[in-house]
Each structure stands twice: as C-alpha cells, then as structure tokens.
Write a protein that binds this DNA or RNA. Structure first.
Lengths: 112, 112
DNA sequence: CCTCTATTCAACCATCCGGTTAATCAACCG
DNA sequence: CGGTTGATTAACCGGATGGTTGAATAGAGG
C-alpha cells in the first residue's frame, strides 16, 4: 500500500488518534498508553504496530519497556496534501487565485 | 463512526483520492469518473457512496446522470486536525512556542 | 535460578472492504 | 410502448481489520 494510504488508514481510528494525542505530551510505554482504554493490552500493541508502519511513531528500548515517540512527518504530509484543496474552502484563497489569474492575463496600467 | 474517522477512512484509498483530484477540475458524472480506472462501474459507484457519506462529495440529478461535486469542508477539518501537531515538524513554530512560553512566564521590562 | 513485569506472538472470530457479476431502477428517445 | 443509456442495488468472495484469550519472549531483581 502507498505511504499516504497507510497514514490515512492509521488515522481512521479514534483509539489511534487518541494515542497520538497522548504522545504529543511526551514519550510513553505501552502500558501507559493502554491505561485509558477499555481494551486489552494486546489490542493496543496492535494499534501501535499500525502507527509504526505508517511512520507515525517510533519505538525505543529501555530495559523491558518499549517507549513510543510521536513522529510528525506523515502528519505534515497529509496536511500538505489537504492544502491542495484549500482554494475550495478558503474565500481569501479564492481572491488570491483571481489575483494570480489577473497577473497571468497581463497587468493593467494601474497595477504597474 | 465519528466524522473524522469516516473522512480519514474515505481518504485511505488511492482510487478515491484520485476521484477527488478529478473533481477539483469540476463536476463529473459516474461514467466520466470511472473512465480512468480499470475497475467496474459498480466499484466506482461504491467508492462514490463512501465519499458521499464522508461528506467529501455531493450528488445532483440531471436526467439519468448523477453529477458529482467536490465538497472540501472535511478536507479543511483534517487539515486543521493535522495542524495541531505542527509544532512537532515546524522549526519556526518551535520558536514561536518558546516565545509564547516566555510571555506566559511573565513579560520583561523591555517587552512592556 | 526463579519469578515478576512488560510486551509481543499466535490462533481464532466477527465484521468490514474492495472487487466481481447479475439484476434492477430511472429517464430519455424513436 | 420498447429499447437504450446511466447508475444503483444485491449477492457473493477473498483478504484485511479490530477485538479476544492464551502462550511465549525479554529483562530486572531477589
């Protein structure tokens, strides 16, 4: 599966997004991450594997703990992807678009 | 399923993202959208249903055609969501963060 | 060495997903 | 009306997904 699809698929789960939100406050172990959820530790471990394969987290080693750390690069990528469509929701961008089109058509006297 | 999960799930498929890219050039019928893909019309129809339920497209009615139109609001939402994490990938934002923390700690004389 | 803790692996289950083909619905058109 | 075109619905299939329980691995520590 392509990179972008992996990232979107990983984010399409509230539990995994919640885990990312927790990691924004700093590194955490699997047990710490699992604590707020009513599901088994193994299920959380699976979620972490999905996040890891999407490049959204990395895991270290500290004795028997596997601290997880947020990796934001894929989030930058999906933000940039969505920004392609900004002109469809942003009024000001529409006007900028019009402005750029005007420049392309040729500057008028008062613009020079 | 919650709104954000629906949108992310809808975007986690290259065919559907490709359909959105096509719709950025304007409305299109199901047949027109299906043309570039090596899959059946019915499969495309299913993709469109997924996109519609995620709020990423709306469909009109023109005789026997069902023109599809891009709806960008959910894209704005996911962009905004990802922006929460900007400080983890943007150096400049880090410095802004430091600056805001300084203000919170207490303005100095020269800042007043 | 034994045991406790942290975590992963394995097997299983129900459901969902992306695709297929066949049938159906809706609207125009001769 | 009957036929053609555009699109959706239905039933099905294989593989992925999210959860479970139970067993296995890895390291700390008495």
């Amino acid at each position: 599966m392509d990179r972008l699809s992996l990232v979107f698929a990983a984010l399409a789960d509230p539990t995994r997004r919640s885990i990312l939100a927790r990691l924004a406050d700093g590194e955490a172990t699997v047990n710490q991450l699992a604590e707020p959820f009513p599901i088994s530790l193994q299920a959380v471990s699976k979620h972490l594997k999905v996040l890891e394969q999407a490049g959204l987290i990395t895991r270290g080693r500290d004795a028997q703990w596997r601290p997880c750390r947020l990796e934001a690069a894929p989030l930058r990528d999906i933000s940039a992807w969505a920004e392609q469509y900004r002109r469809f929701w942003d009024e000001r961008y529409d006007r900028l678009d019009d402005y750029l089109r005007t420049l392309q058509t040729g500057p008028t006297a008062e613009e020079k």
